[in-house]
Amino acid sequence: MSLYTPSSPHFHANNSVTQIMLKVVYALIPGILLYVLFFGFGIVMNLLIAVVTALTCEALILKLRKRPIIPFLTDGSALVTAVLLALSVPSIAPWWIIFIGTAFAIIIAKHLYGGLGYNPFNPAMVAYAMLLISFPLQMTTWPLPLSNSNDYLGLVDSFVISFFDTASAGFAIDAISGATPLDYLKSQLGLEQSVSQIMQSSANFGLLGGSGFEWVNIAFLAGGIWLMKKKIISWHIPVATISSLIILAFIFYIYNSEQYASPFFHLFTGATILCAFFIATDPVSAATTPRGKIFYGVGIGILIFVIRNWGGYPDAVAFAVLIMNMCAPTIDYYTKPKPYGHR
């Protein structure tokens, strides 16, 4: 009788892909709760539709690709993609926006490139870019924060808005939606207004960034720091992304504060925090060497600032991440650490 003779090591840490992915989802929960508090249950509808679509598509395509379904379905990667996309899409968007986006993310952006571990681009961001280009109206109709809108969207309201339309739920679309702070700032700057004038003219602006969103973002920040502490993500990408964006914003703010928004505004509006801690840190599509992660993060920070200020879209996270995804293999190649004994 021969004994079991696997190759060493015979010991393994008690971790798994599933645990990593689930921790990413846990870290998003505080932000999601605040989202519900400030903007109603629309985001819950988004999340439900996205998760169901993602898992269904994942299972179907795994079957088509003749891959083992259970280990891949439970790895949590489709769940993370679904949650990130749901958070990126306006919470009052119709159901088919999320359905199409999620299916596109899982089937096209993930599995057609080889599935888990092989996709060169962040699936959620590929889907977001596709949706933004294909359905610009639905993708830029964001809910107003609770304080500025007269009505709170409950679960039923959100269901009706999602599957029918706003009118059926008894709301005037203008009453509950509006441009995001970034969008508003951009369009008003185009009308030769100064930043301070714009900020005062709309109740959508809060202390740090967009009213309501700033708190959601602070919760995401807390979740991100928890992820770093749990060593699910390293500090490199978030710190590089945020600091490059802040430094650039600060330079321009000092140069002309009437034309350029403050660094705080850039940090706490839009998807900056979500990007720095949750989207850019997707290991599959990001740079992986420590130095490479810094270049990658700095690239994203710069691109966010450039596209926000001079590009055609109000927010820039998806494009910044996708462009840097393209650069990741090259960055990795040129930032190889020096092995022991090569110094």
């Binding site: 280990p71 571990g117 290991p283 990001a286």
Partner: peptide, 15 residues
Amino acid sequence: AFKTRDFAMPCIRCG
């Protein structure tokens, strides 16, 4: 204390 090797998932390049 010891486990047998399970099914190996693809590398997710976590680093």
